[in-house]
Amino acid sequence: MLQNVIIGQYYPASSPLHRMDSRSKLIAAFFYLFIVFLANNWITYGLLIAFTAVTISASKVPLRYLYKGLKPILILVVFTMLLHIFLTKEGDVLYKAGWFEIYEGGIIQGIFIAMRLLLLVLMTSLLTLTTTPIDITDGLEHLLGPLKKWKLPVHEFALMMSISLRFIPTLLQETEKIMKAQMARGADFTSGPIKERAKAFVPLLVPLFVSSFKRAEELALAMEARGYRGGEGRTRLRALQWHSRDTFALVLLISLTLSLFLLRS
């Protein structure tokens, strides 16, 4: 039922991307968010697509799997594309029927925007697909470490994040379980008018909240019992390690950025 949500789901495999340090992947993904906006013509978009395609093939995540995770977002992409196609009034008129006109500029804009969205989503899902949640938060904690000087609770944030990530699958499982139990008692989550359907979720949400609170309490207790008292002086079982491939990846990204600057119009 809830099997095609892949955000925050790690795809186990052994690929160069999986083996990269989570810090370099985080930096790269963050960087990528910005350079996507540099592209503004066919060549630069082509370059970005090529780069993304190479990254995807290096990740060894099957396309079919990636596509499944993208599906919910595709609607948004198509919607934005159509919006741009209909609302942009630049370039030659390609089609005209009464007040309804489609311009060449609109088509191009639509394609570019859709591409931009797709590229962004693809790269960020690659990050979570190839990096375990624990590694992501470890990396974040490292990268944000300097902010501790200003009394920002970086460690606590990282911990909160890793706990939430850790419990996403558990929560999904639990949801599915309770849904089934209520369906067995005649609850109907999939049909009927909106108002009825919203009401149908009460039997699902109440037990879910109850068990989440209970679980949070138990977790806090278990952590305290094992002597957890914050990040101060805490060492790691698995320390992050920066390799030459991480440097290489960042150099590659910087060259991509430079090329984008040179080729954009």
Binding site: I178, A181, M183, P203, P207, S211
Partner: peptide, 17 residues
């Protein structure tokens, strides 16, 4: 579903009212 009633493992988790 009316005819086939299931008591799940740990059914107390389904209480909500």
């Amino acid at each position: 579903r009316k005819k086939a009633g299931i008591v799940f493992q740990y059914p107390e988790h389904q209480l909500f009212e």
